[in-house]
Simulated scan of single mutants.
Amino acid sequence: MSIKRIVPDITSERMDDSRKFYADFLGLDLAMDMGWILTFVSPGNPTAQITLMQPSASAVPNPNISIEVEDVDAVHVKAVALGLPIVYPLTNEPWGVRRFFVADPNGVVINVVTHLK
């Protein structure tokens, strides 16, 4: 499995305060702003990232970590074969990613994702 990056995901009910903290205090650049989700990157190392998202309004839990992989379909097949708990199905999202959520043995929800080309 080829892992491209690992990004912590923080659920925030204080998006404006969080934006100021990560941009103004830590000096991270805002790379993506979809309103409900913000991704910040280090100006000197674009793979050093952190994502903030509003609490989920659906039954789907927010992930705790995102792991970008080369081939999400292959990773999904492996997760199913190992009997791991899939908590969000393999889905092509309208914002250009293909992903699924899997829970680790500690209940940590991991967003396994590939960017669609």
Rank of each mutant, 00 (worst) to 15 (best):
G44R: 09
Y88P: 03
S58C: 02
V72P: 03
R99W: 11
V112Y: 01
F40K: 02
F101D: 02
M1R: 05
I3Y: 07
T11L: 12
K78V: 03
T114F: 02
Y88S: 11
T47D: 07
S56D: 13
L28S: 08
R5I: 12
S66N: 11
S58K: 03
W36D: 15
I3S: 08
E93P: 00
V41Y: 06
H76D: 05
D9L: 08
K20M: 07
R99V: 08
R14H: 15
S42I: 06
V75E: 06
P43R: 02
N111Y: 04
D17C: 09
D29N: 13
S12T: 13
E68L: 11
A74W: 10
K20F: 06
N111K: 03
N45C: 06
M1G: 13
P105Y: 02
V72D: 02
D71T: 04
P94Y: 06
N106A: 13
Y88V: 04
E93V: 10
F100E: 00
T39R: 06
L90G: 05
I67L: 09
R5K: 15
M1A: 11
P46D: 10
A31R: 15
D33R: 08
A59H: 14
L28F: 15
P8Y: 11
V97H: 03
V69S: 01
R14Y: 08
K4I: 15
A79N: 01
L84E: 07
K117Q: 12
